[in-house]
Amino acid sequence: MAPAVFNTVVAGYLGQAGSIPVRLRHKHCHTSPGPDAVPEGENHHVARRACMGVRTWLGEWPIFRQATGPDPLGRGAAVQSPRTQALGPRTADADEVVKSICPYCAVGCGQNVYVRDGRVTQIEGDPDSPVSRGRLCPKGSASTSLVTSPSRVTTVKYRRPHGTEWEDLDLDTALDMIADRVIDARRRGWQDTDDEGRVLRRTLGFSSLGGATLDNEENYLIKKLFMALGAIQVENQARI
């Protein structure tokens, strides 16, 4: 909820008690930040008073509209400002709504991902889901901030042996270096047989941890690739 809306609603409630000067409430309606915020100050009001009828001017006052209009509790139209009137949900102007599933626990709640200009703008519960019926918990509700997090790291970081700082590294170079290291570790950890002659055909050179947060298709490729490399040490959170 934007601060302007919040203050307006509070003012609407408090208006019943009459303890806050009308002018202050009026100001509250117009001090919200944002590109469409109306400039504040006495000059502004004088100027507008001059070019508008008194009734129009009065109609700008929430208390007037609340007292005379169809919204005596001040919970709707009575307390709207031009800015709050212009506000709409982020979901309304999405280019598309993409069906998804929550990435946190294993309940598998349905999510609707709202996208505008190639960016995720909002994630809501999917009412169609018979699992969750549109609901999300605090984590699922925070998914928008998960996928748009400012602290997310989106480039490769490299720490050389004994290094004290991260360095940048090209993704393709990193992939190539990792492929070399897999081949080398696989060779060094290779076991054809044990000392009783039983065939092992495996490597203990490297291992893998993770899978519970990944897709089935991804786990499938990990298992398939590691088995073909002879790498048996593949584990994930299900062991934990």
């Binding site: 599933i101 929550c102 990435p103 946190y104 626990c105 294993a106 309940v107 598998g108 893998s208 993770g210 899978g211 519970a212 947060t213 990944l214 897709d215 089935n216 786990n219 499938y220 990990i222 298992k223 088995m227 048996i232 040490q233 593949v234 584990e235 994930n236 959170q237 299900a238 062991r239």
Partner: peptide, 22 residues
Amino acid sequence: ALRGHASIQGSTDIPTLYDLLP
């Protein structure tokens, strides 16, 4: 069983686990 990760069931079915094949 209430499992704790989005696809921890899937990663057991298609196991990234040492003692199982899919």
